[in-house]
Design a protein around this nucleic acid. Sequence first.
DNA 1: GTCTATAGACGGATAGAC
DNA 2: GTCTATCCGTCTATAGAC
Lengths: 193, 193
Amino acid sequence: MTRVSKRDQIVEAADDLFYRQGFDHTSFADIAGVVRISRGNFYHHFKTKDDILDAVIAARLANTRAMLADWQVQGDSPAARVGAFIDILLTNRDKIERHGCPVGTLATELAKLNHGAQADAAAIFTLFRTWLRRQFDQMGQGARADDLALHLLARSQGIATLMTAYRDPDFLCRERDALHDWLDGLAPPPPHH
Amino acid sequence: MTRVSKRDQIVEAADDLFYRQGFDHTSFADIAGVVRISRGNFYHHFKTKDDILDAVIAARLANTRAMLADWQVQGDSPAARVGAFIDILLTNRDKIERHGCPVGTLATELAKLNHGAQADAAAIFTLFRTWLRRQFDQMGQGARADDLALHLLARSQGIATLMTAYRDPDFLCRERDALHDWLDGLAPPPPHH
DNA sequence: GTCTATAGACGGATAGAC
DNA sequence: GTCTATCCGTCTATAGAC
C-alpha cells in the first residue's frame, strides 16, 4: 500500500500537467507516464478525461481552501493578509512566467473549449474573491468589499498575463509596489468608540 | 478569381478559429471546413500548422497596426485616444466574455505549449505598448510613459480574464470607470511657457 | 508543356474510451 | 489489449491558365 492512493497520485499528476501544458493538450498517456500506471488500470479510477478534470478542480478547491485558511491564521491583520495574497505573484514568479496563473489560465482555456466545467473552475476564483471580501470587510470597507476583491483579483490576473508575455522583473516589482500602495491608501476602518 | 485570395481566406479563418477555440485545439480539418477546400489543397498554401500560426500572427500584427493608426487619426487628444483603448473592453464585450482577449490568450497558450512563436505573439502586445507609451509621452508623462503603458495593458488583461470567468456587466462598468478615473487623474503635462 | 490550384486517398501516430 | 476516430503530413491525379 502506497502512502498516497493511486487515485490521488493521478489527480496530482494531472493537476500539474493541466497547469503546465493545458488541459486539452494533456493526454492520458502523459498522465499515465508520470504515475507509472497502465492505461487499463487507469479506467478503474477515471472513466473519462472530464472526470479527471472534475477531480483536479475539486483538489484545487480543497488546496485553495487550506491555503486561505492558513493565511487567515498566520496574517496579523486583514491588510497583512491581503498583502500576502499580493505577494504570491513574487513567490510563484517562475511558474507564472512560464505557465501563467493556474486559476486564470484554466478558466480561460475552459471558456475556449466551451467546456461544461467552466462554472467549477470559476468557483476557484470565488474562493479567493470571498476570502478577499472578508479581509476588506474587516478593514471597514463594508459595501465596497466585494468590488475591491474583484478589483484586486483582476489586477493580479493582468500582472500574471503580462509576466508570462514579457518576463520582466522590473514590471513585476513596480506593479507589486503599486498594489501595496493601493492597499495602504484604502480608507482605514472608522475607529472604535 | 475570388475577391480575396485563398491564402488570405485560410489565414482569416485560422485567425478566427485560433481565437475562439485556441491554437492547439484547432485542426487543419476545422480550417479547411470553413474555407471549403480539401485538406490536400491545404498543403499547397501552408506546409505545417506552425506556418499558419506565423501567418496569423503576421495578420494580427498588420491589423493591429492599422487599428492603432486609425485611432491615432480619429482621437482628438492623447487622453481621448487612450480612452478609446480602454473602451475596447466594452466594444468587444461579448467576444471577450466567451473567448478572452485575443492577444493575452494567445500569448498564454503559446507559453503553455512552450511554442517557438511566443516572442512573435508578444510583439502584438508590444504594438499596443508602444502606441500607449507614445500617448502617455504626449501627455507629458515622459519617463513614466512606458510604465504607464504596461500598467494599463495589465489592467485591461486582468479585466478581460475576470470578464471571461464571471461575465458580470457591473464589474466591467466599474473597472472601465476606474480606468477612466485613473486616466483623468494622471498629472497633466506642464503648461507651455 | 509547364505552372498552379484543387481534390482525394493513404499511412503512421496518437487520441480517448471500453 | 483493442477499438474507433482523428490528427498531421505525404502522395498522386486532375483541371485549367498561360
